[in-house]
């Protein structure tokens, strides 16, 4: 009961090929973390390792976690209308640290703001109404483009 069974069909593929490691956080003063918890579960179910930082993180704390965890991608959830300020700041902090880690934004982002965010270096924006598949493919796509840019 306490020892999970070893699923051989899965480990044959996953053993030497490491799962995607994703850092999930909310930046600044924004208390709405229910969506992020659903995303955490969704990404876990897609076979990713989710390093969950939760509420009230700073760009510094997220960069520090990425370094220590050797994360492949950052997922930020934003529900405080601060995305135009905070998301580019996150991208800059990542660049300044010399990390090559894409930043994916989710939450309440008006469609009009999406091009601005993409221009500022955000890898993908997942809007309201996105399905679980959308979330997974946005995160996976961001990681793949980072590894082999078009």
């Amino acid at each position: 009961m306490d020892e999970p069974p070893v699923d051989t069909s899965l480990s044959s593929d996953a053993e030497f090929q490491a799962p995607i490691r994703v850092v999930l956080a909310k930046l600044g003063l924004d208390g709405h973390d229910r969506g992020l918890k659903v995303v955490a579960r969704t990404l876990r179910d897609a076979g990713m390792e989710v390093i969950y930082l939760g509420l009230r993180q700073t760009t510094e704390s997220i960069v520090a976690a990425c370094e220590q965890e050797d994360a492949d991608v950052i997922g930020l959830s934003m529900h405080n209308a601060g995305h135009l300020t905070l998301a580019p700041r996150m991208v800059q902090a990542v660049d300044q640290a010399g990390l090559r880690v894409p930043v994916v934004i989710g939450g309440i982002v008006p469609a009009d703001d999406v091009p601005t965010l993409i221009d500022s270096g955000v890898a993908a924006v997942i809007g309201p109404g996105a399905s679980a598949e959308d979330v997974v493919s946005a995160v996976r796509g961001a990681v793949e483009r980072q590894i082999s840019p078009r």
Binding site: R44, M48, V50
Partner: peptide, 20 residues
């Protein structure tokens, strides 16, 4: 933290208790 035996994924939530 444990990985899911079904999907291989995991939620690693220990940092949240350490950093804060």
């Amino acid at each position: 933290d444990p990985s899911s035996p079904l999907t291989g994924g995991a939620i690693l939530g220990d940092r949240i208790r350490m950093d804060s």
